[in-house]
Design a protein around this nucleic acid. Sequence first.
DNA 1: TTCTATCTTCGACGAACATCGAACGATCGG
DNA 2: CCGATCGTTCGATGTTCGTCGAAGATAGAA
Lengths: 120, 120
Amino acid sequence: MIDRMAAATHPAMEDLDLPTVMHALADPIRLGLVRLLSDGEERAWGDLDAPVANSTLSHHLKVLRSAGITRTREEGKRCFVRLRSDDFEGRFPGLLDTTLALAAEAGTGVADVRLHSAAA
Amino acid sequence: MIDRMAAATHPAMEDLDLPTVMHALADPIRLGLVRLLSDGEERAWGDLDAPVANSTLSHHLKVLRSAGITRTREEGKRCFVRLRSDDFEGRFPGLLDTTLALAAEAGTGVADVRLHSAAA
DNA sequence: TTCTATCTTCGACGAACATCGAACGATCGG
DNA sequence: CCGATCGTTCGATGTTCGTCGAAGATAGAA
């Protein structure tokens, strides 16, 4: 679980470059995740329903986190994810908002990521 | 040369999806090319000075073209490239402008693509 | 402690990618 | 014609990526 003692490693925004961020946003699943989180609310890891195995989902969340796009918080046995909007906006102004607007539309190749039954 | 008779193949904007576009923008060289073209002016292929072999440059330009980001025109023996801003803006509003603004800044991991000596 | 739920990491696989040099084809100038 | 120029395409190479299942690690419950 993310190495509970070191907490999920979040990069400093100034260490990120544009290609890295673009690459993180260049996958249907990851875009689906970003879209699901677009309201700024925090979501429980276990509530995420993506069409891939858990190990793959974990990988995608790591890529997003490594690109400064999301933040992960640990609480006991569970994890919670949300966008890192403020920090990100400071480093890459406009990019997240623009991407969210585009990902919100249909027919853009964004994967169908939703919440399991118990939508909060 | 792009098959002179069929002209460089440009995709219809409605056939493009977001992951494809993001992927095209997730490479330092391609971002450098986009930045060089950011003023909307047309550039001669042969004037492009990127830190890769010609065959690689050709590949990158094809990726950008396939993603609807650039347009290629052929004139006799030479080629000219420019951004496909209008079409692109219609399909992915704000994305190109936002990317251009970010790519214009230093320290964002964008490759140094410029013009050969004879800048036009 | 032992079991269970939760997420990460490992190891492996095929596919896709960036890169190069060489070969190709088309065009234009002698 | 012949040769030079221009850009694409081919073939090869090493890397990265997305994906999975299995194994690992942690925290809480029994």
